[in-house]
């Protein structure tokens, strides 16, 4: 939409900002289980970063550089979330029962891994996909 030629500084900075925002969103996503954050927040923040890029660089440019199909992203997210539930179901536990344990990983030290993280990843993907779909369908609608 806003696509003026004379905003050089803005364009340079927005790239940096977008990278920072995406990084921060990923941090929020991972810290979700133990600190404020999680799939919803991380997903929405990622969506905002992509949207900001769209605002600055225009629809066609970003569509080339970020060729995601957001509908697929939503489906994958939903399937992922449902899938974690089914695993525990097959194992004889109630649907969507989550498991966690602590592992000793090189470089990271002791890390807690939970199946809830996979579930949250599903949430993340779906939220990004849905938020982008909502806005892009309108923006791309020419008629």
């Amino acid at each position: 939409m806003i696509n003026k030629p004379n905003n050089m500084m803005f364009r340079v900075f927005i790239r940096l900002i977008a990278v920072v925002v995406v990084t921060f969103s990923i941090y929020l996503f991972f810290s979700g289980h133990n600190a404020p954050g999680g799939g919803f927040i991380g997903g929405l923040m990622t969506a905002i970063a992509i949207l900001v890029m769209y605002l600055v660089f225009g629809v066609s440019t970003i569509k080339e550089s970020l060729p995601f199909n957001y509908t697929y992203m939503m489906s994958i997210g939903l399937l992922l979330a449902a899938f974690t539930g089914i695993i525990s179901w097959i194992a004889g536990y109630p649907y969507l029962k989550q498991f966690f344990d602590y592992f000793q990983l090189p470089l990271f030290g002791e890390v807690e891994l939970t199946t809830a993280l996979i579930f949250d990843l599903g949430v993340y993907l779906l939220v990004v996909g849905a938020a982008m779909t909502f806005i892009l369908t309108i923006v791309e609608d020419d008629s």
Partner: peptide, 20 residues
């Protein structure tokens, strides 16, 4: 509330597109 906010976001988005 967190659940409600997100669902409400979905509904709002749908309704705005409907309005459009």
């Amino acid at each position: 509330i967190l659940t409600a906010i997100v669902i409400n976001f979905g509904i709002t988005a749908f309704v705005s597109v409907l309005v459009y």
